[in-house]
Amino acid sequence: MIHVLAFYLFAILVVSSGALTILSRNPVHSVLWLILAFFNAAGLMILLGAEFIAMLLVIVYVGAVAVLFLFVVMMLDIDFAELRAGFVSYLPFGLLIALVLLAEIVLGIGLWSAGPIELAQRAAPTAPDVSNIKAIGTLLYTRYIFLFEAAGIVLLVAMIGAIVLTHRARGGVKGQNIAKQNRRRPQDAVRNINQPIGQGVEL
């Protein structure tokens, strides 16, 4: 009973905050609704018994990705009216993409639930006493180890690529050498002199 109630609560919140992400006028509010959607999706994961995925969803998406979104959006100077002007002209195209995505999801789930993997899973489900951290770990580091490492390499390449693309050597920047700063002693910087009257200081 309470399980069902919780499911509908989370599901309604996910869908409505997803809708509000698109509908709200202020982009910062959009990002906040998106965060709420992520958070409730994590709640749905917990109801499914996938607490590890739920926690990762919160840590990665809410804690890191959405903060960056928020960061960027907060600093953007957006003309809201201009942003919304194209809404109607883009609507058919958007609907088409939504339709394609929906078809893909339906097809994917349909094929998967009738396919050999799911049927095998139903015949031999994961043992209930194995926590899903262990289950995911075993699967990720044995059967999918190469895919996992390939994903890691793709991320690394993307990261280096982003640095290479945005990095530019600027002239006139005073870099700091911390070791040099720490080595500097008062006697290197300060000099006591007995200044005679009527003469300039020799620097």
């Binding site: 607490e51 990762l56 919160v58 840590i59 804690g63 890191a64």
Partner: peptide, 22 residues
């Protein structure tokens, strides 16, 4: 007494930043 206790704390503490940013 959940089996992802430490991850829960990480998740919660990563929410803390929103209070400040907002």
């Amino acid at each position: 007494d959940i089996n992802v206790g430490l991850l829960y704390i990480l998740a919660i503490s990563s929410l803390g930043v929103y209070g400040v940013v907002l």
